[in-house]
Design a protein around this nucleic acid. Sequence first.
DNA 1: GCGACAG
DNA 2: ATCTTGTCGC
Length: 237
Amino acid sequence: MTGIVVPHPWPRDEHEAAAIQERLRPLVDRDGPGPQRPRLVAGLDVAYGGDGEDDGADGACRVAAAVVVLDAESLTPVEEATAAGDAAFPYIPGLFAFRELPVLVEALGRLRNIPDLLLCDGQGLAHPRRFGLACHLGVITGIPSAGVAKTPFTGSYDARALGPQRGDGVPLVDAGETVGRVLRTQRGVKPVYVSVGHAIDLDTACRHVLALAPSYRLPETTRLADRLSRDALRAHG
DNA sequence: GCGACAG
DNA sequence: ATCTTGTCGC
């Protein structure tokens, strides 16, 4: 009966957007340890319709967000919520969060359960200003969060040192700082890029990501949220 | 200065 | 993100 309602600052342009990230960055709790035995883990994702990339400077195009809450033990869906609308910000690397935040927050607000962990589709600390989408969502909701990205953004790593086994990983380093981990979730597949979002440490985050990805490259949370967001886009859009 | 750049 | 056929493999 709660519902996660979170007012958050909104920028008019990219300059203000970067300023907001700088202002909220100090609020990030990077040290966890975070939830060791989370009961509910939420996966979040957004699907794009129509223009997608060829949108104007305002970035307007249909978007649909989905949140899927899983029982961490059985990986069974407990609840799901969606929200559709028009993107209120263009896609700009580094400011990506402002494109997905509005619909994601709206979807989160429709949840009856409060997840113990938020797994986001994108980066957390592995961001040029150390404030990617996962950090942003974690800070404004106060819920522990982590980012799981399919491709790297900020930072570099030693690919030769990355083992082939599920669970193998190497640090993702940027400007001499470890900002995340390149993690192999399955043998024979490309790794994913895990980074801390808020109120959890990197080891714990990677442990949960592995537990949530027993059969595929991406965690079940992400896979289900991805599917649901596309369905929501078809239903609306 | 040039290129690269989460989704 | 999204646009898209066939194809290799479990």
